[in-house]
């Protein structure tokens, strides 16, 4: 078995797939540099990301997979889970080695692994679409910070851009230290270190930076949340299944 070490990018992963064919490797073990522990008994090959090679592999996959599956590859990659890199490489090789349609083989473990991980990432993306609570700032930007399990920010752009086309908004990932900013024209990735200025509590911008109306609407929302509940039907087990406790920090209606 050959050991490949790559830089952790999608480009690097695809380049690794390319090399595995060029070197006619029977089996490849793929780890990212971050998770690589050098071993004196095993030689390793360092993959240098190459745009050209990555594109060829991507285009090759796109010939056999529909758009939905290509998006699944991307979503599974955004999970940032160390094991998924191996699964992605194996999946890519499985697809390339077989005739079109192989992606329907849910009995195959690579197909199932990518399908299931992309589903997890998709669910996290969907939760962010649901649970983000913007606060309106005095300079008329709708602001929210998030702390998602997976790196889902790139998947959120279209959703928020289509929906909030007439307001400026900023969504910032506290864990990965970058955000999306929409300026009424386009969405841009921005980087700055927030942690120093703001508390890590979500929905907790300091009062002085907020629009004067913000307090009223967050209050009305809390009121609404309480009024729309039917106490005779109380069912906390179901409640928690829908909104696992680790997401409560997002929900202004669940605070205080």
């Amino acid at each position: 078995m050959d050991l490949y070490v790559f830089d952790g990018t999608l480009e690097g992963l695809l380049t690794a797939v390319f090399h595995s064919y060029q070197k006619k490797a029977a089996q490849v073990k793929l780890v990212s540099r971050e998770h690589f522990h050098p071993d004196v008994f095993q030689e390793s090959f360092t993959v240098i990301s190459e745009d050209e090679k990555a594109k060829r592999v991507w285009a090759g996959l796109a010939k056999k997979l529909d758009r939905e599956w290509m998006l699944r590859i991307y979503k599974a990659f955004l999970s940032e889970q160390p094991d998924i890199f191996q699964d992605l490489l194996d999946f890519a090789r499985y697809i390339i080695d077989h005739a079109e349609g192989a992606s329907e083989n849910y009995g195959n473990k690579h197909v199932l692994a990518i399908s299931q991980m992309s589903q997890k990432v998709h669910r996290e993306k969907h939760r962010m679409e649901a649970f983000i609570r913007f606060q309106q700032t005095a300079d008329q930007i709708y602001y929210a910070h998030i702390d998602p399990d997976f790196n889902v920010l790139p998947l959120l752009t279209d959703h928020f851009k289509n929906r909030y086309a007439d307001q400026k908004w900023l969504i910032y990932d506290l864990k990965r230290k970058y955000g999306l900013f929409y300026d009424l024209e386009k969405v841009e990735e921005i980087e700055f270190d927030f942690a120093a200025e703001f508390s890590a509590n979500l929905n907790a911008l300091p009062q002085q930076v907020l629009d004067p109306k913000e307090e009223l609407y967050s209050l009305l929302w809390k009121d609404y949340f309480r009024s729309t509940n039917i106490p005779a039907r109380k069912n906390m087990k179901l409640h928690i299944r829908h909104v696992p406790k680790r997401y409560w920090k997002y929900l202004s209606e669940k605070q205080g």
Binding site: H126, E129, A130, F131, F225, T228, N229, I230, P231, R233, K234, N235, M236, K237, L238, H239, R241, H242, V243, L251, E253, K254
Partner: peptide
């Protein structure tokens, strides 16, 4: 999208 759930588990 269900933006939240009440304590009775309804969306």
């Amino acid at each position: 999208i269900c933006h939240t759930y009440t304590e009775d588990g309804r969306c």
